[in-house]
Design a protein around this nucleic acid. Structure first.
Lengths: 347, 347
DNA sequence: CTCATCTGATAATTCGCATTATCAACGGCG
DNA sequence: CGCCGTTGATAATGCGAATTATCAGATGAG
């Protein structure tokens, strides 16, 4: 470690002002109890000594003494600042930065975590996690054990995205995909659709389950045929015609794009013959010159809410923690777009 | 501060393993001097105790004890993660993240710094700056006093962008705009240009001076008329015709776009009648359907180099610091584009 | 058998700051 | 004059890890 000759400590200030280190600390923290009385004159003398110098409190020492550091950790399971991941992380990070600015907090990105199996590890022997007052977790796929351990150690944290794989009481902020899905299905029913196909990935996440649940409980409005895909969509056109489906819903926008391709190759025109919709963020996606129907996920808002919750978890004393709503679902918006049209292709 | 019931300390490990805290520390740091001897058996016992527990070293305590934390600060004078600033900061941040990953360092973004006059303040009473081993400074406009103070306190840091406004020995990594400018001028001369106008902003930065210097020393190849602008470009067409200029260089791409507009309104077609070029990054900019001629600034590389330098400054003992090249200029590339064409508008 | 040397481990101290307990000086009151 | 409450400050302690000084016991040489 490079020497820090220029470092000014409270002790040094105390020497200059002719008082004890204790007084300097008191003055800095504006303490004025009945136990602690410092006359205005002394206070002023210390203040001037501080201003004349270049004193800044050592955050490490503050932390060690048990104070908040106003540092919030940001952990992403993958690199967050690459051009590719900016699509997903960009709005989230922006929201986090803005919220942090408002709260006067700095952000510690755990970019130094060792990578195993393509994912960063949250816990490792040199983790700086504890330096933060709390931590936001981002990423599509999180590690259940990490979450459990954080809960067990009662380290304040918030996951972005619905996370209730584990039975631990994981604090998160997510989107209510179930409600959004139900809304979209109702819309499809209004447009005359009675039979549809839902194409989903075989990933098992809470939000995937939410979507599925909304779909399976919607049978009164629209009857869905479910089909899980790996990368193979070749069977889809057959399923559609066999079922007499007039709409295809897919788990996300990229999947819809693949589907549109397969359909057009099979001679099925969308949305004229078959409507299309994604049960995920659709911003920027277009199918057949039309904006894709799906959801708008307010990522900046999610981030802001996540930081608000985190701040609350941090600043709430243990005996009041129970009163906090630790799981929060935001509503999001349906983007009606132009690819879900009336049955029969009326336009 | 929320209590941390789950916190495991070295003392706790020591109790479990039946040794003293000292030994735990020794084992963790793999110390084995002549002064420090720990038999393999004991060592193993401690190791197991550590692994069984959830122990992680408290970074604040390590820091206080004078060790490196593998934390690099990132200070931007403006918000870095907004959609608008992503253009400029994105590649830099990406480069920084990748370099930090390689070095095993975490990144501390000082988003909590108070904002004055639209700029974040680096030094303030609650700054967490010292928590980092060193710091990278980003931003178009930096504060000279900040830089001087960092140098005075011999805090390891690196500015991104040429910074020698002050007489302090500020470490930086920048682009050699002088060399790039000279290259572009030579190219213009080859294409037959003899008289040109250089439109610059009246900002006085080191890189601005570099460009100007290259221009004023190029009189043997191309004779330049200089003109500084605020927002007013209306006089430009007059200057061009008066001087018989066949090319217009401007300080940056946005300025060129403004110029192209003014010229076209004055009935001057570019690049047919007047060639255009920017002495700055031109990626994504097009004029009259052609890619703008100018520079390509390797921002990721700059960031990587900045972090490399920073790491060097941090890890080099005081008595060898003098051997480090603290100011580094990278070369960048000329983007020949399509708006600098042979004199007379040949194609 | 005794004194020196080596082994293995611990107590004590440091870092900078916050907090608690403690203390000296002073003034008023009975 | 002596007791007490108030005022203004300080010494002492803790936080967690690293480092230094120190020490007890085993072993060796003379």
């Amino acid at each position: 470690m490079t020497a820090r000759p220029g470092k000014v400590t409270q002790r040094e200030i105390a020497r200059i002002a002719g008082v004890s280190q204790t007084v300097v600390s008191m003055v800095l923290n504006d303490r004025d109890d009945t136990n602690v009385r410092i006359p205005a004159a002394t206070r002023e003398r210390v203040r001037r000594a501080i201003e004349q110098s270049t004193y800044v409190a050592d955050p490490a020492a503050r932390r060690l003494a048990g104070l908040d550091n106003k540092i919030l950790g940001v952990f992403t399971y993958e690199s967050a600042l690459t051009p590719e991941s900016m699509d997903f992380y960009g709005p989230l990070l922006n929201g986090i930065e803005r919220a942090a600015e408002r709260l006067g907090c700095d952000l510690l990105f755990f970019t130094g975590s060792p990578v195993e199996e393509g994912r960063r590890r949250l816990f490792h022997r040199d983790t700086r996690l504890r330096l933060a007052d709390g931590c936001v977790l981002l990423g599509q796929q999180m590690d259940g054990e990490d979450l459990e351990r954080l809960v067990a150690e009662s380290f304040p944290f918030v996951a972005v995205g619905r996370r209730d794989e584990t039975d631990a009481d994981v604090p998160y902020v997510g989107i209510d995909y179930g409600a959004l899905t139900a809304t979209l299905i109702t819309r499809a029913a209004e447009l005359g659709h009675r039979r549809a196909v839902y194409v989903h990935r075989d990933r098992d996440s809470p939000t995937a389950r939410d979507r599925l649940a909304a779909i399976t409980t919607s049978t009164g409005q629209v009857a869905f045929t479910l089909t899980a895909v790996g990368d193979d969509l070749t069977g889809l056109p057959g399923i559609i015609t066999a079922q007499g489906a007039t709409a295809v819903f897919a788990e996300d926008a990229f999947l819809v794009e693949d589907i549109a391709l397969v359909l057009s190759e099979a001679g099925i025109t969308a949305p004229a013959q078959v409507s299309l919709a994604a049960l995920g963020e659709v911003r920027g996606h277009r199918i057949a010159e039309r904006p894709l129907t799906g959801f708008q996920v307010p990522r900046q808002q999610i981030a802001a809410e996540a930081l608000a919750l985190l701040q609350q978890l941090i600043s709430t004393p243990a005996d009041e923690q129970a009163a906090i709503t630790r799981q929060r679902l935001l509503q999001g918006d349906v983007e009606y777009g132009g690819t879900l049209v009336a049955r029969g292709g009326a336009r």
